[in-house]
Design a protein around this nucleic acid. Structure first.
Lengths: 124, 124
DNA sequence: CGGTATCCATAGGGATACTG
DNA sequence: CAGTATCCCTATGGATACCG
């Protein structure tokens, strides 16, 4: 039955959607990588990523924390400092990112062939 | 040098971004799967995916075609019919989707633990 | 420093109607 | 059937200012 198969595929897609919700968007991975690299503080992270505004960073950090990919610790003292750290759970993303990376390379070859390219966008 | 590492990570991320641009968004994978399942015609695809509007479907199909994940063929006759088919290239996505799926499952377990859940959204 | 609050511009999506 | 065109509306993001 085709209908049934379709429904099954759709529901099999839910976990895929979850993953894309967690790491998709413009900034999530950039921020996570910045923190992986050792950037711990709000301004530090902000400065490490061009074009990223405080409002967006604030929201994205909350999302990452909700998804237990980073921890947020408020340090004592004045002025207030916070410390963002990657979680162990975040490390499990590496395999996914690796596959996304591989396919991205493969896809570029397919789309652009031997041509060189200079910009970032596939659809340019 | 930290700066250099950072730059390297950023540029290593470009292919990841490419992939997310190609399969990200609300509809791309749903549409691709619908076509994989054998839905060939515009209305057919549209009807197979709840809440998908013609305007969005139209745009998404163009994107998928640009990225050589589907082909579009206009059939002779009246009324006009078109036929969308998956490409071989699109099959290379299966591994990526598999990893995204796996991580989604893993992540849900992590976030919800043993609790059952009934909705689609991780962030709910 | 680590954010929130506010104002504003814009892109994107829904609904509907229409064309070849 | 296979889309475009139009109107409209909301969510998102930039810029800026401000607070603890």
């Amino acid at each position: 039955m085709k209908k049934k198969e379709h429904k099954e595929c759709m529901s099999a897609l839910l976990p895929v959607r979850d993953t894309l919700d967690v790491i998709g968007g413009k900034w999530k991975l950039l921020i996570l990588i910045s923190i992986w690299e050792g950037n711990k503080h709000f301004r530090e992270i902000e400065r490490s990523i061009p074009k990223l505004s405080t409002k967006v960073l604030s929201k994205e950090l909350k999302d990452l924390e909700e998804n237990q990919l980073i921890t947020r610790t408020v340090l004592n003292g004045f002025p207030v400092r916070t410390e963002y750290m990657p979680t162990e759970h975040s490390k499990t993303l590496e395999k996914v990112i690796f596959e996304l990376h591989n396919w991205g390379i493969h896809h570029r070859k397919k789309i652009f062939g031997n041509k060189s390219f200079s910009n970032n966008s596939v659809s340019a």
